[in-house]
């Protein structure tokens, strides 16, 4: 037990570079596996939450652009959504990495200021960028569908109150669209968090053996020749993570629906998968 505490001290933050430098090389214990894989989960959380956060805003902008009647706004948004929804995330990672390493190492001169580029090839930036654009495309499609389904009556009521433009969008259209989109968006969030496992299996290399949960799981599976321990541990962690996510989105859902008497109190799973 005390040995395990020691392991936790050594490896709980290994994925972000704090603690023991070398990974365990032999005599692997269950405690080591649970600790290190849990430590890798930090990266999954980092990618998942930041990508969702930034992606949310970008997706809203894209949805509005796609809904717009101006082709200069609509066409680019449609193409962006088509490219990111139409191709596998796995390939997007590869292409993004290969493209990012082509940026000049010394940095790019923008108006006399040198902008460093080398950090873009690191997983924390490059993979986050890909995940963000990817989830933005999927979410934009969801939000676009919701915008189209905003009840005509609500829009007419807003007009009657003399609301126009931004005010009408912010106070009437957007809240209703969010309410309609939320169940599907919850789904998208779960898929995105699951997709973070691909980061270190794709083009982005692991620095100093700091990787995500699956990186450590495959490390253990390869060293112990036994996939029947490490992978189920990852699976367990992800089930917990998914449950937390559903809980969190459920809270938001209740808030979005709070004015509707008898509206769905619980988020129901939509079998029409969006991803």
């Amino acid at each position: 037990m005390s040995q395990c505490l020691q392991t936790v001290q050594d490896y709980a933050l290994r994925a972000i570079g704090i603690g023991e430098k070398l990974l365990p090389r032999s005599d692997f214990t269950l405690c080591q596996q649970v600790t290190l894989i849990g430590s890798g989960l930090i990266w999954n959380l980092y990618f998942g939450f930041l990508a969702l956060f930034f992606g949310f805003f970008l997706a809203n902008a894209l949805a509005v652009a796609r809904f717009s009647r101006n082709p200069w706004l609509r066409k680019p948004a449609e193409w962006f959504i088509f490219v990111f929804r139409g191709s596998p995330l796995f390939i997007q990672f590869f292409v993004a990495y290969e493209a990012l390493v082509q940026l000049p190492r010394a940095g790019i001169d923008v108006l006399g200021i040198t902008v460093a580029t080398s950090w873009m090839t690191k997983a924390w930036a490059g993979a986050l960028l890909v995940l963000m654009l990817n989830t933005a495309a999927y979410s934009a499609e969801i939000f676009y569908g919701a915008l189209r389904n905003v009840p005509k009556g609500e829009l007419e009521a807003a007009d009657a109150y003399g609301m126009t433009g931004w005010r009408r969008y912010r106070r009437i259209v957007w809240p209703t669209a969010m309410r309609l989109a939320w169940p599907a968006y919850t789904n998208e969030a779960i898929f995105l968090v699951h997709a973070t496992t691909l980061v270190f299996f794709s083009g982005f290399p692991a620095f100093r053996q700091q990787g995500d949960a699956l990186y450590y799981a495959s490390y253990f599976a390869d060293k112990t020749f036994n996939p029947f321990v490490a992978y189920p541990i990852v699976a367990g962690y992800f089930i917990l993570l998914t449950l937390c996510l559903i809980g969190l989105f459920g809270v938001v859902n209740r808030r979005l629906n709070r004015h509707l008497p008898g509206a769905a109190k619980r988020l129901r799973y939509r079998p029409n998968l969006i991803r």
Partner: peptide, 23 residues
Amino acid sequence: AESGATLVEFPTGEETIAAVRNG
């Protein structure tokens, strides 16, 4: 890993060379 340098790992040998080429 033991020498104290920062290790970057790649699944194939060819990619390790590519990594040096592109910095």
